Amino acid sequence: MLAGLLTGWGNNHFAANLDYLEEVAKQAAKTPGPILECGSGLTTILLGLLAGRRGVEIWSLEHIPEWYTRVNTVLERYQISGVNLYLSPLQDFGGFCWYNPPFTSLPNNFRLVICDGPPSNQTPGGRYGLLPVLGQHLCDDALILLDDANREEEAEVLRRWTTESKVSVLLQEFSFGSFALVTYPSRVNEVEVNQ
């Protein structure tokens, strides 16, 4: 079913690989939530179908207006509930850029994070900004699924997170790519960023 969805979605250049989608589906089906998603797409639809329909809320950040519109249209057309999709432009946080999230609308206890954005090759700091910007919104032992962990930019993100926030990382490598299961620890080690 996931392979069919991936083909039907038709975004071969930026779509997540099948192994990552399987892990997203597995985690979405069992998490008590809430869920934060960094970068929207087919994973947003999966999260809504598997978590949103059982009452788990999803907050999804997207910085590309056209992509936001495409995903939002699908959510509305198929009445996929539980997804709060936000157009969140990228902002310079001094040393890295990341989404400018709607801080006051977000819960402070995300249990699952699906991190497949922003694009590392187009964004200074790539996906690094997740923990400095929204670490205070993650609960202890939150699980972060970081896609593309075999790429140089994401490997650097993992190195920085491990050094600065003392996260634990389990790499999952497959023939078509890799992702990391990152467990976020207690807030004692979190990095601060001025909002």
Rank of each mutant, 00 (worst) to 15 (best):
M1I: 06
G10C: 03
N11L: 09
N11T: 08
N12K: 11
N12Q: 13
H13C: 08
N17P: 13
E23W: 10
E23K: 15
V24R: 02
A25I: 05
Q27P: 02
A28W: 08
A29I: 01
A29P: 07
K30L: 09
K30Y: 01
P34T: 13
I35H: 08
L36T: 11
L36R: 11
E37Y: 05
E37L: 06
G39M: 00
G39L: 05
S40G: 09
S40N: 10
L42F: 03
L42V: 06
I45E: 05
I45C: 00
G48W: 04
L49S: 01
L49F: 07
G52M: 04
R53F: 13
R54W: 05
V56D: 07
V56F: 02
H63S: 15
I64S: 09
E66I: 07
T73C: 09
V74I: 14
E76Y: 03
E76D: 13
S81M: 02
G82S: 06
N84E: 01
N84V: 00
Y86R: 05
L87Y: 12
L87T: 00
S88P: 04
D92T: 04
D92M: 05
F93A: 01
G95R: 08
G95S: 08
W98G: 06
Y99C: 02
F103A: 06
S105I: 00
N109A: 10
N109Q: 12
R111F: 01
L112F: 03
L112Q: 04
C115E: 08
G117T: 10
G117L: 08
P118C: 07
S120V: 11
N121L: 13
N121I: 10
T123I: 03
G125D: 00
Y128M: 04
G129E: 12
G129Y: 10
P132N: 11
L134N: 09
G135N: 02
L138D: 00
D141K: 15
D148F: 07
A149C: 03
A149R: 03
N150I: 12
R151P: 02
A155L: 12
E156M: 10
R159H: 13
T163V: 07
E164K: 00
S165H: 13
K166G: 05
K166I: 01
L170Q: 15
L171S: 12
Q172V: 13
E173Q: 12
E173N: 13
S175G: 06
F176Y: 12
F179T: 04
V182D: 06
V182N: 02
S186C: 11
R187L: 12
V188Q: 10
V188P: 02
N189E: 07
N189Q: 10
V193C: 12
N194A: 12
N194F: 08
